[in-house]
Design a binder for these strands. Structure first.
Length: 483
RNA sequence: GGCCCCUUGGUCAAGCGGUUAAGACAUCGCCCUUUCACGGCGGUAACAGGAGUUCGAUUCUCCUAGGGGUCACCA
C-alpha cells in the first residue's frame, strides 16, 4: 500500500508556525515512506476566507521545498483539491447514511436548541442533542421535507457502547458513546460541516494516514463511527502536539511572532526556521541537530515524535539561525546582508571585509544596521571610552598615542587591511607597548563605540583614508579639550 | 463541570526495570584575543506528589495535583 498523507489548511492568512510544522511532519512522513503528499484547501467557511491566502500557502511551502504531489494547482486523480469545489459531493453521502439508518434529518430550530441547551445547563447538566427528530416517522420527515422546512442532517451515535481507536502516538483512545453528541453532518445551507467534509474528503482522496493537531483527539472516535457507518476502511491516525508560547498558552496569532513570515522579515533564514521547528516535538534519536530538508526526510519517523506539547524557544531559534549564518559562504552572506547594508548607508563598502567582520557576529540579519551605523556616520561618545584597564589606556595615554599614530597613518601609502595592520602592529612593537594600548584608542576614535564589529584595522580600512584620518583628528581635538 | 490527553533541569530533549539520569539552548566561570563576537575548557541546574508491583522504579499500575484539549449549523 502506498502511503498518502495530506495537509489541509484553511486559507485564512499567513502561515502559522504550528501549521508549518504540521505540514512539515506530514510531508516528511510521506517522503520518508516513499508516499504521496497531497495539498487540499479547506475553504468551506467563506466568511473567514482571506484574499491571497492560498498563494501564501503555495509560496511558503514551495519556498521551503515541500512540493506536493497532488493539489489545486498541480492536479491529480482525486480532485478537485479545493473543498468549495467539492461541495456537491457531500449531501449524497449524508443521504446514504440516512438510508442506512446511521444518520437522520433534524428540523429543530436553532433557537429551540439553544433554549433547551440553556435549560440543561441551568440544571447543571451537560447538553447533548436529545435525538428529538430521530423519533420522527418517515411520513413526518417526508412531509416536512416536501413543505420545504429547513433541516440539517445529524449523525446517529449509539446511546451506549464504546467508540475507540488506536493513535500511533497516543495509543488506545476510548470514549463512551454516551458522551458523544449527534454531530451535524450537513448544515441548513446544504454545506457539510468541517468534520463531515474531512471524513468524506480523506476517504475519497485515499488518504491512508491522517496527521493533524491533537485538538481532534477526543473527536476522532466520532469520525470513526462515520467510517464504520460507511463501511470504509479507517485511516491510521497520527495526532500531533501543539507548539506552545508558554505552559499555558499555545503560540497564537496575537503573540505577533507566531508566523513564518514574521521571522523571515526579521532576517531569519528559512532553513533555520524549518530545522528548528522540526526539532520542536521530534527528535532523530541521535545527537544530530542540523538537518537539510532532504536529511529530515531520511531521518523522520513517528517514533521520535513527542506526545507532550513543546514550548517555542525564540532564543534557541536565534542560536540556530546564527549557526546557519556562520556556515554560509561569504558571498551568500553578502546576498542576504546587502539590503541591510544599503539601509544602513554602507552599501558602497567592501563586502568581503564586511562579511569578514559581521558574519560571526550576526544572529539575525536585521541586527546589521545597528551594528554598523557608526560606519556611515560618526557618533557622539564620552571620553570615558578611552579608558580601558586591560589595554592599559586612559584619555592621557590615548591622546599621546593618537598624536603619534596620526602622522604615520597620514604617510601610509597602502591603505589596505594588510597595510594598516602591519603599520599599526609594527608601531606598537617599536614603541614597546601592548597592541591593545595602541589599538584601543584608535578604534574608539574611529568608531565612537566601546563595542564594535571588527577592530581598529578593519574599521580604518572600511572608513577610507579621508574619513578615518578626520575621525582621528576629531578624537585628538576632543581629548585636548578634555570633554 | 463531563470526557480525552499530557507531566525528566528555565527551554528543547535522551531514557523504554539496574545509568555517576545523555546532549543542545540559556546561564555562570576560565582561556584565547585588538573591543565585542566566534572558538576552546569547565560549573550550576531535572525525574510533580503519594501509594502499590518488584530484589530493584525516571521507566509498569492506581490515586492526587497541575496543565492542555474538547464539548458549535467554526474550521
Amino acid at each position: 500500500m502506498t502511503i498518502r498523507t495530506r495537509f489541509a489548511p484553511s486559507p485564512t492568512g499567513y502561515m502559522h508556525l504550528g501549521n508549518l510544522r504540521s505540514a512539515l511532519y506530514t510531508y516528511l512522513f510521506a517522503r520518508h515512506h516513499g508516499g504521496a503528499f497531497i495539498l487540499r484547501i479547506e475553504d468551506t467557511d467563506q466568511a473567514r476566507f482571506v484574499e491571497g491566502a492560498v498563494d501564501v500557502i503555495y509560496r511558503t511551502l514551495r519556498g521551503i521545498g515541500m512540493e506536493w504531489d497532488e493539489g489545486p494547482d498541480v492536479g491529480g486523480a482525486f480532485g478537485p483539491y479545493v473543498q468549495s469545489e467539492r461541495k456537491d459531493m457531500y449531501l449524497p453521502y449524508a443521504r446514504q447514511l440516512v438510508e442506512a439508518g446511521k444518520a437522520y434529518y433534524c428540523f429543530c430550530a436553532k433557537e429551540d436548541l439553544e433554549a433547551r441547551r440553556a435549560e440543561a445547563e441551568a440544571r447543571g447538566e451537560v447538553w447533548k442533542y436529545d435525538k428529538h427528530c430521530k423519533c420522527l416517522s418517515h411520513e413526518e420527515v417526508a412531509a416536512k421535507l416536501a413543505a420545504g422546512e429547513p433541516y440539517v442532517i445529524r449523525q446517529d451515535v449509539p446511546l451506549s457502547g464504546e467508540a475507540s481507536f488506536d493513535d500511533v502516538i497516543y495509543g488506545h483512545i476510548a470514549v463512551d458513546c454516551a458522551d458523544l453528541d449527534d454531530m451535524i453532518l450537513i448544515k441548513a445551507d446544504g454545506m457539510p460541516t468541517y468534520n463531515f467534509a474531512n471524513v468524506v474528503d480523506d476517504h475519497t482522496m485515499g488518504i491512508t494516514h491522517v496527521m493533524r493537531g491533537n485538538e481532534y483527539l477526543a473527536s476522532t472516535p466520532k469520525y470513526n463511527l462515520l467510517y464504520d457507518a460507511f463501511e470504509w476502511e479507517r485511516p491510521v491516525y497520527i495526532h500531533m502536539t501543539q507548539i506552545m508560547r508558554d505552559a499555558q498558552h499555545k503560540l497564537s496569532k496575537r503573540d505577533g511572532d507566531a508566523y513564518y513570515e514574521d521571522f523571515i522579515d526579521k532576517g531569519y533564514l528559512s532553513e533555520a526556521i524549518v530545522n528548528y521547528v522540526a526539532l520542536l516535538g521530534w527528535n532523530p534519536g541521535d545527537e544530530r541537530e542540523f538537518f537539510t530538508l532532504a536529511e529530515l526526510c531520511e531521518a523522520f519517523g513517528v517514533e521520535g515524535m513527542s506526545k507532550s506539547p513543546a514550548i517555542f524557544d525564540a532564543q534557541k531559534l536565534t542560536w540556530m539561525n546564527a549557526e546557519y549564518i556562520r556556515r554560509l559562504a561569504p558571498e551568500t552572506f553578502t546576498v542576504h546582508a546587502l539590503p541591510y547594508y544599503r539601509s544602513a548607508g554602507i552599501g558602497h563598502m567592501d563586502t568581503a571585509v564586511l562579511a569578514a567582520i559581521l558574519q560571526q557576529r550576526t544572529e539575525i540579519f536585521s541586527q546589521i544596521p545597528g551594528m554598523v551605523a557608526f560606519l556611515a556616520k560618526a557618533e557622539e561618545y564620552p571620553l570615558s571610552y578611552f579608558t580601558n584597564k586591560k589595554s592599559k589606556t586612559n584619555p592621557d595615554i590615548a591622546l599621546d598615542v593618537l598624536k603619534r599614530v596620526l602622522p604615520e597613518l597620514e604617510a601610509l601609502q597602502d591603505w589596505s587591511i594588510a597595510g594598516i595592520h602591519d603599520l599599526l602592529i609594527g608601531l606598537a612593537q617599536v614603541w614597546g607597548m601592548k597592541n591593545g594600548t595602541l589599538l584601543w584608542p584608535v578604534r574608539i576614535a574611529l568608531s565612537g563605540r566601546e563595542v564594535t564589529p571588527g577592530g581598529a584595522v578593519e574599521i580604518a580600512y572600511l572608513l577610507g583614508r579621508d574619513e578615518a584620518l578626520a575621525r582621528l583628528r576629531a578624537g585628538i581635538a576632543k581629548l585636548e579639550v578634555g570633554e
